[in-house]
């Protein structure tokens, strides 16, 4: 038996590194050019979920799918070096300016071409967009179930390929859910640590280039026409969202609470934070 898992990845600017402050524009937007580009953090947790299934069951292949500029091939290559089998970038001028609706449309078209598949994995949200909409929209378009905020696949994915037990964590609660495949799972970053890039694979793939349309290599490039996408529904043309303005909205502290430097006072504060689920 062969099984096909698809992981959606997005390349985003690395806002976790030391260069972040320098890259922050006055209006609160980010100067992407001066930050290194990385795979969106939550997408890595999604990839790890898929690779854990691949580790356990023979015949599982993992395809990475991304929509973005040609530079996003680097993110796909990194995903391949962590253990995925194939990476496909959907790119083209017509895709520029896509909102979540246009993005989910293009990914839907690509997924239709990739059928059959058993599971779709993605990050809950991207660090640069922060909408958490693409996953649910895509599940709706595909007509399959969607579970958000998944942190782990439990019980060694024992029910695969029919059912999975998943742990879902949110700020104040944790759930164990059993769900039937096919499924779209969107992962948060509270699961198992992501496996590192494999050195031998990274060296072996150092010269791999994207093959237009597909072919023998592991990196493919598709344009909208390759997936039968209607350009009127792609990019800015297919995006009803309009950003009218944006401004920084950093939190302002209005009240400061002084506590003593005793163990008791610190323990009381820690207890309060734990009760409020801000800690632990």
């Amino acid at each position: 038996m062969s099984f096909h898992l698809i992981v959606l990845v997005k390349q985003v600017p690395d806002t976790s590194g030391p260069g972040f402050t320098a890259a922050l524009n006055q209006d609160g937007t980010i100067n992407r050019k001066i930050l290194p580009a990385v795979i969106n953090r939550e997408d890595l947790y999604a990839l790890e979920g898929a690779l854990e299934i691949k580790d356990r069951f023979p015949g599982v292949s993992v395809t990475l799918l991304s929509m973005g500029p040609p530079s996003a091939l680097a993110a796909l290559k990194e995903g391949l070096c962590r253990g995925a089998d194939r990476g496909i970038l959907v790119t083209g001028q017509a895709l520029a300016g896509s909102d979540t609706l246009a993005t989910s449309y293009v990914l839907y078209c690509a997924l239709k071409r990739l059928e059959p598949f058993d599971l779709v994995f993605c990050g809950l949200k991207s660090s640069d967009g922060d909408t958490a909409q693409v996953g649910p929209e895509l599940a709706e378009r595909l007509g399959i179930n969607h579970l958000a905020s998944v942190s782990e696949i439990e019980d060694g994915a024992a029910g695969f390929p029919r059912r999975l037990t998943l742990r879902r964590t949110q700020d104040t609660r944790e759930e164990r859910i059993e769900a039937a495949l096919p499924l779209l799972l969107s992962f948060n970053d509270r699961g198992r640590e992501v496996r590192p890039v494999k050195a031998r694979r990274a060296l072996g793939l150092r010269k791999a280039e994207g093959l237009p349309g597909g072919g023998e290599g592991p990196l493919w490039i598709w344009e909208p026409r390759d997936i039968g996408a209607d350009e009127a529904l792609c990019g800015a043309a297919g995006s009803p969202t309009r950003v009218i303005s944006s401004r920084p909205a950093a939190g302002v502290s209005r009240k400061a609470l002084m506590i003593g430097e005793t163990d008791e006072a610190l323990a009381a504060m820690a207890g309060e934070l734990r009760r409020d689920r801000l800690l632990g």
Binding site: P196, V197, A199, A202, L203, R206
Partner: peptide
């Protein structure tokens, strides 16, 4: 040399 840099970067990250 490029290969060395690539892998040293992985080591550096780890």
């Amino acid at each position: 040399r490029e290969g060395y840099a690539l892998v040293l970067s992985l080591v550096g990250e780890l």
